[in-house]
Design a protein around this nucleic acid. Structure first.
Length: 164
DNA sequence: ATCGTCATATGAA
DNA sequence: TTCATATGACGAT
């Protein structure tokens, strides 16, 4: 059984929860998702350092600004395919988008566009793994696990326009 | 422009 | 093995 540390990030958009294992950030939860209380008591110095970085990164994305630095990400829950997708998403800069098929091509599985959508849906760290920057090929919005309002909001913040 | 249909990869039950 | 998908391409209308 892994020990999970849960810490909060207060933003204008609400209270986010960040979950850490002993090797890095494993999950970032949007506000209003039903969630258990934050871990109380003493936090390891390394985790505290990671969390400072996470909080800064989350606030940068919410402000539509580029992220300078990410905490270590722990992809333990992902399959190798999902990890490949998530790592590819990290390369999409703010203000740019890719299609599901483009991501599929980038990881050398050109026919797996639909599966890329599945991997995005399983993304445990939205915002920092920018699955909101993945649109359908026709430039329509696609889906978003945290709710489409969030995807639209984030894209608008980054100056991206989509089809209605 | 919109809609139906099919091909296809991946993952969970 | 069966089922569901945050897709995409194509053709009919």
């Amino acid at each position: 059984m892994r020990a999970i540390i849960r810490l909060t990030i207060q933003t204008q958009a609400g209270l986010f929860f960040a979950h850490y294992s002993e090797s890095g950030l494993i999950e970032l939860a949007f506000p209003n998702q039903r969630t258990r209380p934050a871990t109380k008591g003493k936090i390891l110095p390394t985790v505290h350092t990671w969390h400072t970085t996470t909080a800064r990164a989350v606030k940068a994305v919410l402000a539509g600004r580029p992220v300078r630095e990410l905490p270590p990400l722990d992809f333990w829950s992902g399959t190798s395919f999902q990890k490949a997708v998530w790592e590819e998403l990290l390369w999409i800069p703010a203000g740019e988008t890719r299609s599901y098929a483009e991501i599929a091509r980038a990881i050398r599985k050109p026919k797996a566009a639909r599966a890329v959508g599945g991997a995005c849906g399983a993304n445990p760290i939205p915002l920092l793994i920018p699955c909101h920057r993945v649109l359908a090929a026709n430039r329509k919005i696609g889906g978003f696990s945290g709710g489409l309002k969030w995807k639209r909001r984030l894209l608008k913040m980054e100056g991206v326009t989509t089809q209605s």
